[in-house]
């Protein structure tokens, strides 16, 4: 039976009990959200491919790298949903939002850097930029994961 017993005159105690129940559920949800170990390395690898793509020997190969990277990104997101039963693209609070914005800005900056280095024929430096991207993305995603978990548990 559905529990549908909303009070006609809600009380402060009733409101606190409802908030406590919501917080307990969010903690249970946080316990359930265990990111598969391959997810963040996968995201970091795809981002690395995007950043390294300007060093491709021809525009056609660059297009293929970007296309394959996009397919891999979509596949990763779908696999995450299949494994966890959850689709999540929202941040859980201001800290996780700030981290996401910083990571996005850094990726754009690294893409511009890689493009500039490629135009100057500095391929070894493009490789170094790509390697840095992989490490930064993996670490950044792990930091985001921790911030998301903490903000989710902080609750309603």
């Amino acid at each position: 039976m559905e529990s549908h017993q909303s009070p006609q005159n809600p009380t402060p105690d009733g409101a606190r009990a409802a908030l406590d129940a919501l917080n307990a559920d969010r903690s249970a949800l946080a316990d359930r959200i265990v990111t598969p170990p391959w997810f963040y390395p996968g995201i970091a690898a795809v981002t690395t491919a995007f950043v390294a793509s300007p060093a491709a020997p021809s525009p056609l190969i660059q297009c293929v790298v970007v296309a394959l990277g996009s397919v891999a990104l979509i596949s990763l997101v779908l696999a995450y949903k299949r494994v966890t039963g959850l689709a999540i693209s929202r941040t859980a609070g201001p800290r996780s939002l700030a981290l996401l914005i910083v990571l996005g800005a850094l990726v754009v900056l690294l893409l511009i850097t890689s493009l500039a280095l490629s135009l100057m024929d500095r391929e070894p430096w493009v490789a170094a930029t790509a390697a840095f991207t992989f490490v930064m993305m993996w670490a950044g995603c792990l930091a985001y994961d921790r911030a998301y978990d903490a903000e989710l548990r902080r609750g309603a």
Binding site: S3, A18, L22
Partner: peptide, 11 residues
């Protein structure tokens, strides 16, 4: 506000 409805929305 019914408990089950609220918990579902909260999750």
């Amino acid at each position: 506000h019914a408990p089950t409805r609220l918990r579902i929305c909260g999750l």
